[in-house]
């Protein structure tokens, strides 16, 4: 007969179970809000980033493949909203190294 495990790595299993059940039943849950189940799978309304095909994209006939997107014409530096984010090395700066 094995001895019953009540502690693992210094953590009380019974205490943790009680805590979990309290968190799960409490109205003001300290954990994240439960997801709301939604039942209908609706087709034809998926977001752009989440649809199943890229049909429709790139159907314009710009006809400039050699001019556009030419890697040799590198002149861009990264830019964007992350300049508001500070890092351990100071404020974010998106100037690419030249």
């Amino acid at each position: 007969m094995m001895t019953v495990k009540t502690n693992v790595a210094g953590i009380s299993l019974a205490g943790s179970l009680a805590t979990a059940l309290a968190l799960l039943s409490g109205p003001a849950s300290a954990g994240p809000a439960p997801a709301q189940p939604t039942m209908d799978k609706c087709y034809g309304v998926s977001l752009k980033a989440q649809n199943d095909c890229a049909a429709g994209a790139g159907t314009s006939c710009a006809g400039t493949s050699k001019a556009d997107y030419d890697p040799a014409a590198w002149k861009y530096v990264a830019k964007g909203t992350c300049e508001t984010i500070s890092t351990p090395k100071g404020m974010g700066s998106l100037k690419a190294k030249s």
Partner: peptide
């Protein structure tokens, strides 16, 4: 600092 109680709740809260 791992807290088993919070994590057990998370398993079910987050589905």
């Amino acid at each position: 600092d791992f807290d088993l109680g919070i994590n057990l709740a998370l398993l079910f809260n987050a589905g």
